[in-house]
Design a protein around this nucleic acid. Structure first.
Lengths: 234, 234
DNA sequence: CGCTCGTTTGACTCCTTTCAATCCCAGTGG
DNA sequence: CCACTGGGATTGAAAGGAGTCAAACGAGCG
């Protein structure tokens, strides 16, 4: 096995995606000595995860936070009646699992929705860093606020109005976070859990959007949106 | 005018309600000297506000955060189409306006829903404190997570299922946060903006709940809930 | 090829909205 | 003291959107 390189190392292959990382700037300006720095970075794990992979489960207590370098993660909340709602989506640059920093159990399960490149950072690393580098708090607060904004947009944009309008909002949101304006072809069940309708309604709407040419399904299972058409529905 | 007393002062009349304050424990263990402490506390303002009072407006940049000592505050989001949704409710012990700490504009308007006792704390005080007392960050993160939990419960409990179920959830939530199990008699328009239905539907449901004796309206404009009956609807 | 799993579609039901009218109560002014 | 008035609450009737239940369809896979 080749010697492991870390995100602060120039030679690390994934370096360019570190730009949005919650702890990177902190680590860069670290006052830690070399031994401490190595100890911190050793705990960090970076890898790709396939669609469907569960990063953590609702109800459990997490020991890590996660930074998303690419891809998309859904926050799924299981309901008492057996149903489920997706309460947030997270994309490149977001940090999830922050409740673990406070020692609180996970309110939702975090599941990869689109193949994702993710850094796992032990909470102990955060605690170690914050003693010497209080600026990590600023990063954490930014991420907390971003999660709050996303959750609120799920209420105002994806939880309000007719089903058709909500779906248009969802597609535009995904498009805005996508690269090359190619969004993943979601499961109808996920769409339903996001905009709060039944799977059948989600399917009907998507089929309808396709017929009206608001969306174009590509060979590679991606979707291209007619943004202007979708905006006209809102 | 009698000399102003502060929340750290034993003689301050509102002292008992400080227990949940975001900055109180921080100030108590302050490493600030007396002059600095006085400077910090001078900026803090505490007073009662009537129902309908707007603490801050959507779109504006705030200079303060607010700690709720009693009462209830609604976070109102105005929609493009002229409608409005209430995305969160905040009660005793909550801190709101945290986005101002990050210099971000308000995503919502904060409006008093039930006569409330509120401390206004300038962001400059937070910035001054955090240099010397990093433990204030822990308090802020706790409050951010609490806001996130509340927003998510609006999606999962108040934004999912039939209107009747949602209203039951809302009443139970208000009841849990109320003292002596007496909740305020909300405007039908507010109920509608919370559970995402029309004002008429909210009115119909409330009238129906009253007839079925799930709620009892008291002389003093308060409401008493039959919690078991409401729980059976969920 | 037969299976499974997800998608699509149909028919019917039911809940919620829409548009309107009426009611109720508190505050106002004659 | 009582009619007047305005804002919120209530109620009705009709229309429409989403849910429910069920069946057919299609792609991927052992």
């Amino acid at each position: 096995m080749t010697p492991k390189t870390y995100c602060t190392d120039e030679k690390w292959p994934g370096r360019p995606d570190c730009v949005h990382c919650a702890i990177r700037s902190t680590v860069l300006f670290s006052v830690l000595n070399e031994a401490e720095l190595g100890e911190v970075l050793r705990g960090i794990d970076n890898r790709w995860h396939e669609t469907g992979h569960e990063l953590y489960a609702q109800g459990a207590k997490g020991e890590d936070i996660y930074t998303i370098r690419a891809g998309c993660v859904k926050m799924v909340h299981a309901l008492d009646d057996g149903g489920r709602r997706i309460v947030r989506l997270h994309y490149r640059g977001d940090a999830i699992g922050l409740q673990s920093v406070l020692g609180q159990p996970n309110r939702n399960s975090a599941i990869v929705m689109q193949k994702a490149d993710i850094c796992r950072i032990p909470v102990s690393v955060i605690h170690a860093l914050k003693k010497r580098n209080p600026q990590i708090y600023e990063q954490l607060m930014q991420r907390w606020q971003a999660s709050l904004d996303e959750a609120e947009s799920f209420i105002t944009e994806l939880g309000t109005g007719h089903a058709e309008t909500r779906l248009a909002h969802l597609l535009l949101k995904l498009d805005a976070h996508s690269e090359r304006h190619c969004i993943p072809n979601l499961l109808r069940e996920d769409i339903a859990a996001i905009i709060g309708v039944t799977t059948e309604t989600a399917s009907r709407l998507m089929a309808d959007f396709r017929r009206r040419k608001f969306i174009l399904e590509k060979e590679d299972r991606g979707i291209h949106c007619d943004r202007d058409a979708l905006k006209s529905l809102i």
